[in-house]
Design a protein around this nucleic acid. Sequence first.
DNA 1: ATGAAAGCGCTAACAT
DNA 2: ATGTTAGCGCTTTCAT
Lengths: 338, 338
Amino acid sequence: MAATLHDVARIAGVSIKTVSNVINDYPHVKPDTRARVQTAIEELGYQPNLSARSLRSGLTGAITLALPELSLSYFAELADAVIRAAERAGKVVLIEQTNGDRARELEVLTSPRLKMTDGLIFSPLGMGMDDVARLEVPYPLVLLGERIFDGPADHVTMRNVEAARAATEFLIERGRKRIVVIGAHEDEVIGSAGLRLRGYMQALDAAGLEFDPALIGYTTLWHRSNGATSMRALLAMGVEFDAVFGLNDTLALGAMRAIQEAGLRVPDDVAVIGFDDLDEAQYSLPSLTTVNPGRDEIAETAVATLLQRIGDRDGAIGDARQILARYEIVERESTPPL
Amino acid sequence: MAATLHDVARIAGVSIKTVSNVINDYPHVKPDTRARVQTAIEELGYQPNLSARSLRSGLTGAITLALPELSLSYFAELADAVIRAAERAGKVVLIEQTNGDRARELEVLTSPRLKMTDGLIFSPLGMGMDDVARLEVPYPLVLLGERIFDGPADHVTMRNVEAARAATEFLIERGRKRIVVIGAHEDEVIGSAGLRLRGYMQALDAAGLEFDPALIGYTTLWHRSNGATSMRALLAMGVEFDAVFGLNDTLALGAMRAIQEAGLRVPDDVAVIGFDDLDEAQYSLPSLTTVNPGRDEIAETAVATLLQRIGDRDGAIGDARQILARYEIVERESTPPL
DNA sequence: ATGAAAGCGCTAACAT
DNA sequence: ATGTTAGCGCTTTCAT
């Protein structure tokens, strides 16, 4: 059996209170008592029983991260960043995959398994504004993504509209006038697709360019294959264009493949920009210019915010906050130099 | 405060034992008592306190998965598969990232945080055979990967040598005779690189082809950029070749980029095969022929094996087992048809 | 500076 | 079929 406080206390010839004091760095312990306890701890290889500690303290030292799926690079890189940020704070991360399925997302919000952790960082994809009320939960919650706004929980997200506008302007500054968008969702107002499309429109407007519906490629999912398929369809219809804005990197990468298949050159004939700054955007042929939406900052802030809420037993922090990360355009080979 | 067993018992007018019986599906409970308890549970929104349950039962219902990093697609897809398999068994997964750093890996093996879970699925990258003794741990452990063999723990892995041999033979069958390998590690005997290189040699041998050291591209890491760099170096040296075996998919993808940059055609001038069957292998240009090493089966088996060990309180299962998944070659566009 | 003891919420052995 | 009760190992008043 694993050693307990009592075992350590017995070996060290002190009470369990003293051992506890040593472990928790309570200041008033005589140096030589402390040393004796330390020796006993090492001798026994004592490690505290975390279940017991949790039961007593009500805190587990773990947080849950719920996201659609790790096979999507964006979420894998987000999870990586969240785990690193949590680790820096000495916390550990439990991952739930929802597949972006609304029912599963709602289920996760009330799952008993959440009690294994102190709070939830939640990146929904299937839920919408109608489900806002479901976010009134009795535990600390930080929301990610663009499915819900002004909900009852802290929300950390990116500047979708501004960043998409900047991406579009980046193409316009380089002389492109007929800019295809890949990945739009019919009638979506919020959600990443809706917001980024709005940014696109704003940029056209500001530049005095006319919006042409023929330039919009709709896809339901945002995988590489959807980008390629959508692009091929546009190509087949004979639409004329000189640039492509992929609403995320995988779409842009897929579209870039279709463009090259058709014998067009990137960036000479068609300039391409993506959104997300995935690791692989550096390694495509040509490498992909894209928007870094501040993923690391989002992860960092989400963890910090959640931990604040967890530590805030008497609601001193106040109302739900909206936090926006800084974005940045990363220029690579898929767009021409200025 | 959250409701407890006592609250439910009081409302339902029974003892906590009865409530506990209902929750744990103990058979001998009168139907109407059960109904009364159920009503009380719903009324109070009772959810069991998992810390208390863990303290009492010694089991948490969670497992740890320790891997290098989620930003590497292979591990993201592995984690995805492990989480799904665990979920099917009603277990939850906590993820630790080691960055493939040996010191960090050894640290994870003895971390107190492991006590938050019932066992560990461990995919080391920095540890080696010298560290085998460190795997004698006082908790259920299942090992993944090719860093350690015949250790004291169950080991689930892929048929590296056979699969690499099959990949090489696949190229030979298509008439290729000068096959470059990208991603070799100097003097490595075990490890993915060492094993796969051995499979390559075996295939050459069996086909009566001579091994040419000039065809081996060494890289320390297995990112896309390493594949591209290594390939460019070989190209610059004027080495002649008609095929490339990337020891993993990202290397192959990087190499393919360098090949195309050099004006060579895939698969006509150079056939390319990878290893891993990542999602993105389907979407490259051309799509990548590769080896599916049985990742889903590995994840499934690792979880099942770990849960068996966890449930096996009196060591009835016996010694450490070695389990090998089935592999399969997935033919795509980067190799010519037979 | 240290000790004694209560109790977090649950499970399970033991009663009835 | 249901109730009583003793801990699981820890933190934390309250004493000393």
